[in-house]
Design a binder for these strands. Structure first.
Length: 697
RNA sequence: GCCAGCUUAGCUCAGUGGUAGAGCAGCAGUUUUGUAAACUGCGGGUCGUCGGUUCAAUCCCGACAGCUGGCUCCA
């Protein structure tokens, strides 16, 4: 991929790290940043023509983007790592050199920058682009280790030998400066640590994450299936055992929301185009909605087919007289209205006058589109909920009104984005919209945050963070609704509540929703991986577009604020997260298979008949209490039955044999924990029921 | 959508230019048990789809689809 030297926009990049930000790099980040330079050094020794772009430390390691005709594959890693080891062993110092912009441009022109030596005819074009992004007045510096000279603001470790342990991990494609239109580079990922022990720990965590992969465990446990052939990619089917998880989560949410004063509603999965034109979603998000369903009556269908044909003739260029002929035929055969027909004649006339007439085509397209009704699959529930608000008149006495629904939404995510349950095209949201006055906002918002914290506790999530996304003034009218004052006012309100309630949050600019500020909730799983599971937004714009009002005390009509919140996010992503978090070993209240009664003795064997009856009584008793329980009365050896139940991750196994029957006891075995001993039957049953009721961890 | 890799039985994976194998699972028997696997037998595959090269393609080539890892995106 040999890219032309790229023109780079000189506009200041809001994402760009300042020199102060960089100076705060942790020791580990310095090690990784330095490892990126060492990797570049190694790659240049193997392929001297390589061109480098950027090589920063990232969350789990580092990468360097390289432009190189040779396609680097994991087979090359060993070779690169061997060269890296040499450079580390040489223990070269990282030398900082301050230069002028002119000097830097000259070194890039000669190919010296980002190389081991001058490379005549091989301009360091990506580095020139990087140079242009450095604001005037900011010092320009190089770092040099051995022969490798790189444009770099640092900081680094003192010497290459300070990189204790490293490993190259993967190679992927990346755009230069993240610009889809820019050249595509090879991004080589690696990780580095201060010593081998830490590296091994990290690799072990990666292994553990692999074992906990929700796609793998989901298949093993029979939770969900993705039938790409008949249903479609990104549209999971919930199997019976996965449905248990879905419904337990719904039950939890319904109880919690009922207690918090929510009311439930239900809405269809489709709506007319007008809905999303009004909400503003269509102009902003048309690309990620499924294309519309066009409802055409028979006569409209005919007209449409004729118009489409007419259009394609016009586009192709027609024989003289065709247009007139077509219109003649059209008048005779169709039920098209006189007004529309005369418009069509106008288009044809305009076309005759100017064959490149773009406007005419647009009018024709609009006519074709205007036929029939278009329905869209909903990509979010809010517009439907707004119409529920609009369905009845409201007074300030009705507020806050909290409408909750497990709404199914459909989003046409790009094919490359789909990922197991984590990124899907059909999703079930734990959705609710709170309509309230400005005065009520703080209390409502605080209550929503409390609900999050309550859930975190139930699922044993110790680490969380809220990402508070605000707008950027440049995006007003494009990415964001053009209401600068409302933006400021709402963001201030949100920030105030976050600070007052001591919530752990960070603020990020320019990532808000188009209608208001957004909060993404990040949590960390049991093995320390981050997931964004929920989102929470304030909407000051769309209720007004739908003309939603309530009658206030002073007898005037006012527009309510709307808080969008989904603490459990979508079932799909949340369950995906829970699978990793619990490694499939769900607590009793969630476990698809809660209890299995295993008999030492088989059904059909007369000697075991009393034992089997005892077992069945236990099973029936638990089932009557709503416990998901099964009995294994087969002739397999007990060890085999246990192995089977363990493999299925049955939470509690009640093993019973002659001894238990005599004592009126059961012997309790917990998944993953082994035999915990014998207990009176009634006690064991009471324990199980209590653990489920309390949603014990 | 873009780049790269991958696609053989329900699952995990062997294998070959001459139309395929193992283990587990499944099914049928036998066995009758104290905390992770008792024995025997049987069935199961258009080797992702479509096209090309070849006397012959699961294998070589191409297109498409899907998956995986990234990039971009995420109301």
């Amino acid at each position: 991929m040999s890219a032309e030297p790229q023109p780079v926009p000189a506009a200041p990049d809001p994402e760009r790290k300042t020199l102060d930000d960089r100076a705060r790099m942790t020791e580990l980040e310095r090690i990784r940043h330095s490892a990126a330079h060492v990797m570049a050094t190694a790659i240049l020794r193997l392929w001297p023509e390589a061109q480098f772009a950027a090589g920063p430390p990232v969350e789990n390691g580092f990468y360097y983007d390289v432009d190189l005709p040779h396609r680097i594959s994991p087979e090359d890693f060993e070779k690169i790592e061997a060269e890296m080891k040499k450079e580390i062993k040489a223990n070269n110092p990282f030398e900082k050199i301050i230069v002028t912009r002119e000097q830097a441009i000259a070194d890039a022109q000669s190919g010296r920058l980002g190389g081991l030596a001058g490379r005549p005819g091989n301009v360091s074009k990506l580095k020139i682009g990087n140079l242009e992004a450095i604001p005037e007045g900011e010092p320009i510096s190089y770092y040099k280790n051995g022969d490798f000279l790189d444009l770099c603001a640092g900081p680094h470790v003192m010497r290459t030998g300070n990189i204790g342990a490293f490993k190259l991990t993967s190679v992927a494609a990346a755009y230069y400066k993240g610009d889809e239109k820019g050249p595509q580079l090879q991004r080589i990922y690696g990780t580095a640590f201060k010593n081998k022990t830490s590296l091994d720990e990290f690799l072990k965590m990666q292994e553990e994450a692999k074992k906990r992969d929700h796609r793998k465990i989901g298949a093993e446990m029979g939770l969900f299936a993705i039938d790409t052939e008949f249903v479609g990619p990104g549209m999971p089917l919930w199997l019976p055992k996965g449905t248990v998880l879905v419904e337990e989560l719904e039950k939890l949410a319904k109880e919690t929301e009922f207690a918090a004063g929510y009311v439930r509603v239900r809405t269809p999965h489709l709506a007319r185009e007008k809905m999303y034109k009004t909400s503003g979603h269509l102009p902003y998000y048309a690309d990620s909605m499924f294309p519309p369903i066009n409802l055409l009556e028979e006569k409209d269908r005919e007209v449409r087919d004729q118009l489409v044909e007419f259009r394609s003739y016009l586009r192709r260029g027609t024989e003289p007289g065709y247009v007139e002929h077509f219109l003649e035929q059209f008048k005779k055969s169709s039920s098209y209205s006189v007004g529309a027909m005369s418009q069509l004649e106008t288009i044809a006339a305009a076309y005759a006058a100017d064959k490149s007439n773009k406007e005419g085509f647009e009018q024709l397209d609009a006519q074709i589109d205007g036929l029939g009704e278009r329905y869209y699959l909903k990509a979010m529930n809010c517009p439907h909920h707004h119409r529920i608000f609009a369905a009845e008149p409201h007074s300030y006495r009705d507020l806050p009104l909290r409408l909750a629904e497990y709404g199914t939404c459909y989003r046409y995510e790009q094919s490359g984005e789909l990922f197991g349950l984590m990124r899907v095209r059909s999703l079930n949201m734990n959705d609710a919209h709170i309509y309230c006055t400005e005065e009520q906002f703080a209390d409502e918002f605080r209550a929503v945050n409390d609900m999050y914290l309550k859930y975190f506790k139930i699922f044993g999530l110790e680490k969380y963070q809220m990402r508070f996304s605000t707008h950027a003034a440049e995006g007003l009218g494009k990415k964001y609704v053009n209401e600068p004052e409302l933006w400021k006012k709402t963001e201030d309100m949100v920030r105030k509540v976050l600070i007052e309630s001591g919530i752990n949050f960070v603020e990020v600019a320019n990532e808000a929703a188009f209608y208001g500020p957004k909060i993404d909730v990040q949590v960390w799983s049991a093995i320390g991986r981050e997931f964004t599971i929920a989102t929470n937004q304030v909407d000051f714009a769309v209720p007004a577009k739908f003309g939603l009002t309530y009658r206030d005390k002073d007898n005037s009509n006012k527009t309510p604020l709307c808080v969008h919140r989904a603490p459990l996010g979508t079932h799909e992503r949340f369950i995906g997260f829970l699978i990793e978090h619990y490694a499939g070993n769900f607590p009793l209240w969630l476990a698809p298979d809660q209890v299995r009664v295993i008999t030492i003795g088989a059904e059909g064997d007369p000697a075991s008949a009393p034992l089997i009856q005892y077992a069945k009584d236990i099973v029936n008793g638990l089932r009557a209490q709503g416990v998901r329980v099964a009995g294994d009365y087969g002739s397999d050896p007990m060890k085999a039955k246990i192995a089977e139940a363990e493999k299925l991750r049955v939470h509690t196994m009640l093993v019973i044999g002659g001894r238990d029957l005599e004592a009126g006891a059961v012997s309790v075995r917990l998944h993953g924990k082994g035999n915990v001993g014998s207990k009176p039957k009634a006690e064991a049953v009471a324990d199980i029921l209590a653990a489920i009721r309390e949603r014990r961890a």
